[in-house]
Nucleic acid binder design. Sequence first.
DNA 1: CGGTGAGAACTTTTT
DNA 2: GTTCTCACCG
Length: 706
Amino acid sequence: MDKLTPSQWKVINKSYEPASTIKVIAGPGSGKTLTLLYKVLHLITVENIKPEEILIFSLTNKAVDSIIENLLSIFENSHTNKEIVHQIGCYTVHGLANRIVVENEGMINIIEEIGWRGLMKLLPPSKRTPHHFRSYKELEKVVKDYKLNNAKNNNPVIEKLVELMDNCKVMTNDDLIIRAKKYLELDSSDSDASSFTQDLHNKYKVVLIDEFQDLYPSLAPLITMICKGKQLIMFGDTNQSIYGFLGSNNEIMSQLDNLHPKNFTTVLKLFDNFRSTPEIISLASKIINRPLAEKQIIDDTDETPSELVRKLPSGVSPQIMTFDDLAAESEFIIDKITQLICSSAKFSDIAILSRTNSHLTAIASILKKYGIPYQKLKSQPDWMDDLRIQFLLDILKVCSLASDEKHNREFNTGDKWQSNFSILVTMSALKGIGDASIQALYKACGLKNLSIWKYLTMVPNFEWPLGLSIKKKMENYTSNLYEMIENDQVHQLDDPMELLEKVASITNNLNLNPTYFQSLSDAQSSLEFKTHLQEMAQVMKVSKSNKPPGISFVKWFLETYFDQTMVFHQSQQALQTTGPGTVKLSTIHSAKGLEFPIVFLTNGSMSNFPMDTNALYVGITRARNLLYMCNMKHERLVSKSSPYSRSIMSNNLFWTYYNKDLNRSVCDVKVTHGYNVQRYNQLRKNFGFYRAYSSLRGCKSVFRRI
DNA sequence: CGGTGAGAACTTTTT
DNA sequence: GTTCTCACCG
């Protein structure tokens, strides 16, 4: 604990007081996380706050994971019981909202791409009307606008969609926040046993918010409600605000700033930068147009209100480069990685950050080609965003929900058919089913006051307002699902594998629209689907093993698969840390809060729109020692370095600095230099650098020998 | 029917 | 910053 600086101590020692606010402004590398952790420790050990009275918020799953991980290690070091960490509430804002809503109304549906596309089928087909959308995202926007100023705009079509969403418990993420707030208001005090919702009112005394610059206006109602009257401690840095596309950060911040009276509000700053080299910091300062920090300090007593550089110059400046195409860019990256590895860097020191996920996927396939071990830093596993898998899950939902509703067939309990949404979504994905058929069918169901499933199974097909070929397709749909729903098979199938097999075979029998799903005949995509299926099956098995009695497996799985997947995914990622290490791949957005000794920032040469200043700033400040930038289009960035420079390999001074910075042994840097160059040339020859890109095959396994 | 200018989308996250 | 669409004009 003696490592802490005076400004960090100031934050930690600020005493506990109900209904007060501490706002900590903390630049990159200023030890924000460390300060937050010691603040928690201080609250518990000195201020006598119980761990279960502390609530920690962040926006991304990754941030939450890293906080929990760090808490565990810090409590272990301070000889306190590690168990108390698990009593501290640590959530993403949405995770907490989800918990509140599910506690109050059971299984809900978060709408995504397939869902929106299904809803689009219910819109009138006429062009040149306000209801003609180019993509589902436009519909998403219109629905959002509609909800925002509800009464004002009188739009019957959208109104009906919203009604359908309500009936089927389909929500957007913004809805989740609003609902959660509603339940918090409702609950207020009286009710019975202790629930999660009530705990938020009564139990917590201190709320810590990590990365406050990431908050956006639609979160405000819930957050202010939770924080009011408690001690609010928030950490952040407005220069790193990269979620502007979700709404203004200033708006919610002014609400939070005014939550408690002025004289109960303290603003503190953490100045120092312990992370990056002066070379990197000066580039970062240039990007955000901040005066350069010249002062370098060595002793801890000094405190000046400007950024202070803690590290000595490394002698190596960031490299800024432009490439014409992906091939040239990736060749540079591979070559550079080879050089670094042949000096004293490890794979695990290197991170490649990109602005888009798609570019990241492209990079990943290139690394794979060369046999360079890599790991995608994603909070969700790949299979979760495979549309084909999502379709399977929707089929499962149809079966489960329709089967439940079957029992109230005679007693019409109003018009809330929760299965309707999933049915619409899955039917819309069928080949040859167009908007008109869906709408005609939906209207007919409305007239009879039946759910779509009941209509299709009870009303004789000559009454259906559909063409002959469409009728056939609908019958194919129902007959495929009939056994599962009407014979309750979906609830009886207790074995995950059998269930999955059944659903997969149903899907196979349905003739799906290829615009929704890339053709399965494509060998690579079919292989991908297979791996995703296997990964999903694994989670199903885990889910089966912890299923409580008295609930069918499908229901349990559908209600919990998201959480279970996350837990499973995290444990898998943790396992991969052994071995020669891996190059980390991540979007800049997900890399927030992390740091790496060596960072490559890349931006596919195809995507032309310029880099957002703050995102670039975040990317640059992830780097401790070395920084390479490819195709970063930004006005204050001038491309200069030669791409094929190999000077880094012979820069002994730098590698000594580097190893010292990472607390590694430095003795053998000089001795091995000759050998390093030899090794590099060997690898280069194996890879066939500077030849046509397409000839670079069979390069696998070269790196495995390292 | 073809040319032109205006405006929007592209991307990043949350269960 | 580039690319596409749509309304409008001659």
